[in-house]
């Protein structure tokens, strides 16, 4: 395998725990607010590492820029979506879970 392929492999393996934690957090965390933390933060880092993994494989600048643009869009969308869902829940009067 070429050195670039190894770098891709390492980045993908590093991304795996983040994706897993995002989904496990969705199941384990006690309320919507906590679940938003898990999904937004963990999955965005996971995607960032997948983008980094693929950056070692690109053949042109425009491909690389496109990958980065996709990640930027997801970051922007993810942060906005998390805020909107949390705000909506708060306005509907959902009390955050507290440790008893």
């Amino acid at each position: 395998m070429a050195p670039d392929d190894w770098l891709t492999l390492v980045c993908l393996l590093a991304a795996a725990p983040f994706f897993l934690a995002g989904s496990i957090g969705l199941l384990r965390f006690p309320d919507l607010y906590c679940r938003l933390h898990a999904l937004t933060k963990a999955d965005n880092i996971g995607l960032g590492l997948v983008v980094l993994a693929l950056l070692w494989q690109v053949t042109s600048w425009s491909e690389a820029l496109k990958l980065l643009l996709i990640w930027l869009l997801v970051l922007l969308a993810g942060a906005t979506v998390a805020h909107l869902i949390a705000r909506n829940a708060l306005r509907q009067g959902q009390k955050p879970w507290e440790r008893p």
């Binding site: 607010y33 933060k41 942060a79 906005t80 998390a82 805020h83 705000r87």
Partner: peptide, 14 residues
């Protein structure tokens, strides 16, 4: 407000 959603332990709700 958007940025803190990606930082450790914070989520902007309103």
């Amino acid at each position: 407000a958007n940025t803190i959603n990606l930082l450790p332990g914070t989520l902007s709700a309103e």
